[in-house]
Computed example of a mutant assay.
Amino acid sequence: MAELTVCAPAKINLHLEVLGLRADGFHELAMVMQSIELVDALHLAPSADGTISLRCDRPDLPVDGSNLIVRAATMLRERSGLPELGAHIRLEKRIPVGAGLAGGSSDGAAALVGLQALWGLRFSHPELLAMAAELGSDMPFCLDGGTQLCFGRGEVLEKVPPAEGDPLAVLLLKHPASSVSTPWAYGRCRELRGHAYLRDPHAFAQRREALRRSPLLAGLAGTAAMPPVRNDLQEVVEPEVASVREGLELLRRSDRPLAVAMSGSGPSLFAVFPDLDCAQAAQAALAAACTAAGFESWACAFRPRGVSLEP
């Protein structure tokens, strides 16, 4: 088979609520996640000797068994029962690494979709989702993408219908020298907010239902004004990470953003705009200030789907 290409989009969190702790030690979450048109590309070709190899145009990115692409490929081959399957994989990395944008998870999800096609496998979509959930909490969302309510650890998905008209867009900022440890962010959240955690499964269910009926979904549908974005991790990260504070202040200076927030555990930051033209105009207006402060920026539209095979 000829080489296949799979697009792996980034995501942002339009809502991230830490409800409490689960019996398995993970945090119970209520989120709204959104795919955006900032994508990595995976190029896949069969290998004659049954090896799985990964190359990347970012030399600082691991390409061994710690990479989710390799882990996804290995799992898919093991579940197929066909140990002779192999692939040469080349990753074009455009999503910044360690940014709270699920780039690694999206790449892993893209490997599942692309290798299923390359190897001629017939796993059902629910089976692929189950494999994705084993590999990472964000991976099921990255597989399906679009706009989704995400519950549990993030792997329980409920699709939100796309709005009519032009898609919303974001201006993203990230300082290349800045990083935030996700385990640290959740640990710090527990330290500072653990006293307010919900402990009753019925209370979890009530918060999930409240999110289903929230003004945010009306704002995304264009039937109401966009409310402020809630990110419980931003509350603990922003006071302790200077680049997050500086980037949020820059975005708040842009021309009439609909919302400004941090994505996931950071350190990427975003402002939502009515369309891509507005996001690009904001990027141009803030270009000098972003350069002076050392920030990289991207303007991109909301994306209605997750990973996808290129035609």
Rank of each mutant, 00 (worst) to 15 (best):
R79F: 01
S265W: 04
P167W: 02
G145A: 08
V113F: 07
R22E: 05
A48S: 13
R253I: 01
P126Y: 09
E158A: 15
E296V: 02
R253W: 00
P267D: 03
D255C: 13
A281M: 08
L173P: 08
P228K: 04
L128M: 13
L233N: 02
A218L: 13
G145C: 10
R252N: 13
G114D: 10
R212V: 11
I12S: 04
V307M: 01
E127K: 09
R77W: 10
L250M: 08
R55Q: 12
V6L: 05
E238A: 15
A185E: 02
G50M: 07
A73F: 06
T291I: 05
A203H: 08
A293N: 00
L216D: 06
R208Y: 15
V160M: 07
A8H: 02
E127C: 06
L149T: 01
A285K: 10
W119I: 14
E310F: 08
A281S: 12
V18E: 02
T182C: 06
V237W: 00
A289G: 03
H125I: 08
W298A: 07
L135S: 10
E92Q: 15
S137A: 15
V236C: 05
H175S: 08
R207P: 00
S243M: 07
S179I: 00
A169L: 09
G104E: 08
E134P: 03
I89H: 08
